[in-house]
Simulated scan of single mutants.
Amino acid sequence: MTDTVDVCVVGGCGRVGLPLGIALAARGQSVVLYDIDAAAVERVNSGVMPFAEEGAQEPLTEALAAGRLRATTDPAAVGLADALVVVVGTPVDSHLNPDLGAVPRAIERCVEHLRDGQLIVLRSTVYPGVTALTEKLLSAKGLVVDVAFCPERIAEGRAMTELFTLPQIIAARTPQALDRAEALFRNLTGKIVRLEPEEAELAKLFTNTWRYLKFAAANQFWMMANDFGLDFARIQQAVVHDYPRADDLPMPGFAAGPCLLKDTMQLAAFNRNNFVLGHSAMLINEGLPLYLVSRLEDRFDLAELSVGILGMAFKGGSDDTRDSLAYKLKKILTLKARETLCTDPYVTDDRLVPLDDVLKRADLLVIAAPHPDYAVLDTDKPVVDMWGLTGQGVRV
């Protein structure tokens, strides 16, 4: 591999890196995707999306055919690019403490191939200070490079729209690094917001945490209304109707996925675990499956029933099951119900059962992911729908 390219995306075949690479290639940039997942690399090079992302297949095919995009497992690829964009997962551990080493480890794996003069862009959501830590790491290796932090802001499934329409936050320590990062992302959008690195790190964590807090408020409100025998859907619709100061009150539902809880806990750790709102939100959102089952126990003899869980992804219309609370619901129901059946039209999992079979065998149905497929169900079985997807109310 000797051809130089404009951009190398580290973690380039994942759910954040791949849409970014495709979007840049669609705007005329030459892009190489470096990833340690050989199966994903093979699929991308064969022109197949390794996951569902609306609007990505056609530009992927076009970019491959034009020679503007390719994927590889060869770490030497990072040395071929003027700009390196690092997009790797930044998990919390089993104690909900942030893993500060995820980004540095990704860079360490390929640091021998880096060269002076490159622009290194961190795209992952990071604990405040990781950009500075990365700068120290690269400096200790004797590299003279520009480092920027430009957090991803997309919603999964909307990347191929939002990469071109949402403002891009860019942050760097020097004017030169800022200018280079801005030039890179102006390939996607003309809307740029400049910050200091630590400001941008907090901006990203605040964004995800704010969303998590809003879901917790809605879930707490739903439980309050539900415990008094009232339909929260009717109340929520009245609150938001032509009333802009409350139009961001969501419906209840499982607040899950790989970001919201994780980033709320990163923010708590940053503030020395002094984050009452964040920890309260975690208790509400993570406790929702148990609350739901306890309500079902009040209404049904679960030990004598077969329960069907509809939707195992963490959000509607998605094939992504990462940290989905539907699996927590399944675990609880496995202990309580006579039988638990799970189905999902988007998720590939040998343990799942076709929807028709679930509708036949189950005595009770629970919509765990708001897939549009479940808005109109042909069944006479009781349907528990806390999302309000079916328009039949959300009382449980």
Rank of each mutant, 00 (worst) to 15 (best):
T2K: 04
G12W: 01
L20E: 03
L24P: 01
S30Y: 04
V31E: 01
L33I: 06
L33Q: 02
D35W: 08
A40N: 04
V41W: 00
R43Y: 02
S46H: 05
P59Q: 00
L64Q: 00
L69G: 01
T73N: 08
V78R: 02
A81V: 10
A83N: 02
V85R: 02
V88Y: 08
G89E: 09
H95K: 15
H95I: 15
L96W: 14
N97H: 15
L100K: 14
G101Y: 08
G101T: 15
V111D: 14
R115E: 12
R115N: 07
R115S: 15
V126C: 08
T131G: 09
K136L: 15
K141V: 12
A148R: 04
C150L: 02
P151Y: 03
E152P: 02
I154R: 00
R158T: 03
L163Q: 01
T165C: 10
I169C: 08
I169F: 03
A171W: 06
A177F: 00
A177R: 07
D179P: 09
L184F: 02
L184G: 00
E196L: 12
E198F: 14
E199K: 10
E201C: 06
E201V: 06
W210Y: 14
A218V: 00
A218C: 08
N219V: 12
N219F: 12
M224V: 14
M224N: 13
M224S: 14
N226W: 09
D227V: 13
R234Y: 12
R234T: 14
Q237P: 07
A238G: 09
R245M: 13
M251Q: 07
P252V: 08
P252C: 10
L260H: 05
D263I: 07
N271E: 15
R272F: 11
V276M: 15
L277I: 12
G278T: 12
A281I: 15
N285R: 11
E286R: 11
P289R: 09
P289F: 13
L290Q: 14
Y291W: 07
Y291A: 09
S294H: 14
R295A: 08
R295G: 03
R295D: 05
L296N: 12
D298Y: 13
D298P: 10
R299Q: 13
M312H: 06
D319R: 03
R322K: 05
S324V: 03
Y327V: 04
Y327A: 10
K328T: 14
K328G: 05
I332Y: 13
R338T: 15
R338N: 14
T340A: 13
L341D: 13
T343Q: 00
D349R: 06
D350N: 10
P354L: 09
V358L: 06
R361W: 13
V366G: 12
I367Q: 04
A369P: 09
P372D: 05
T379D: 03
T379V: 01
V383C: 06
M386T: 10
G388D: 08
G393F: 10
V394R: 13
V396H: 09
